[in-house]
Computed example of a mutant assay.
Amino acid sequence: MKRFKEKLVEFMSGRYGMDQLYYAMLLLALGIMMVNMKVDNLILMILSDGIILLMILRSFSRNISKRARENGKFLKIWNPVKRNVRIFIRRIKEIRVYRYRKCPNCKKTLQLPIKRGKNTVKCPKCQEKFNVRVIL
């Protein structure tokens, strides 16, 4: 087993390996496979197999700079989506405690405690006062 491990390390030296794009493609391929189990479509099977083949080719690639650029482009798209999803989930978890409103002047999102009815709020960033109405 030790000899096999050494051979594997020797084979993978100088190769790109796995990154965030690899894991995203893996999840996408698994999702397509799950859907394909229900609908049994040849196109979905070919698509998932193609994604898996592309994952393997990327991880064994010796062109590290090109793979890093691909991952960087993916992260430029993925990170804002991930941040917005986390904010949305946090807002749902805190819906009983806080309300979120944007300042009409500077557009900063403010976290406000629940005070039902009409309230006057002062933005901490631009010092603008504005009215907020909380119904629920």
Rank of each mutant, 00 (worst) to 15 (best):
G14E: 07
R96W: 13
Y98H: 12
R67P: 05
D40Y: 08
K107S: 12
L75C: 00
L27S: 11
V35G: 01
P80Y: 07
Q20S: 13
V85P: 04
Y22V: 01
M34I: 08
G72T: 09
K5L: 14
G117Y: 01
I56S: 02
G31K: 00
G17E: 03
M33Q: 10
K38Y: 10
L8N: 06
N79Y: 10
E70R: 00
F4D: 12
L136W: 09
Q127C: 05
R67A: 09
G117D: 05
V9A: 13
R91I: 02
C126G: 01
N131W: 07
P104I: 10
N71Q: 06
K7Y: 07
I77A: 11
I52L: 14
I32D: 00
S48T: 03
Y98T: 03
C106D: 04
R101D: 11
R101A: 13
K115I: 13
R101G: 02
R133P: 09
R99F: 03
D19Q: 00
K93L: 14
C106E: 05
N105I: 03
I43K: 04
I52V: 15
R99A: 08
R90Y: 14
Q20C: 09
R15E: 02
L136I: 07
N41E: 06
I46Y: 09
N119K: 00
D49I: 15
I51K: 00
M34V: 09
F130C: 01
K129P: 02
E70A: 04
I32M: 00
L28G: 02
I46M: 13
I64N: 08
G17P: 04
R3C: 11
D49C: 15
R116W: 05
I43T: 13
P113N: 05
R133C: 10
G50L: 03
D19N: 01
R15G: 01
E10C: 06
V134T: 11
G72A: 12
T120A: 06
K107Y: 08
M45A: 11
K122D: 07
A24D: 02
Y16P: 00
K2L: 15
M25W: 01
K129E: 14
M34K: 05
L42K: 06
I32N: 00
N105R: 08
S59P: 04
L112A: 04
R83C: 03
N63E: 15
P80L: 05
K66L: 15
N63L: 08
K7V: 08
K108S: 12
K82T: 07
V85C: 03
K108L: 09
F11D: 10
I56A: 06
V9Y: 15
L21Y: 05
W78Y: 13
K66P: 02
A29K: 00
E128C: 02
L112D: 06
V9W: 13
K108W: 04
L30H: 08
L53D: 08
K7R: 11
D49H: 10
V121N: 04
N79K: 12
K108I: 08
T120P: 03
P104S: 02
V81Y: 14
Y23M: 07
A29E: 03
N105M: 06
I56P: 01
W78H: 09
N41Q: 02
P113Y: 05
C106F: 03
I87F: 09
A68Q: 14
Q111A: 12
T120W: 10
C106M: 01
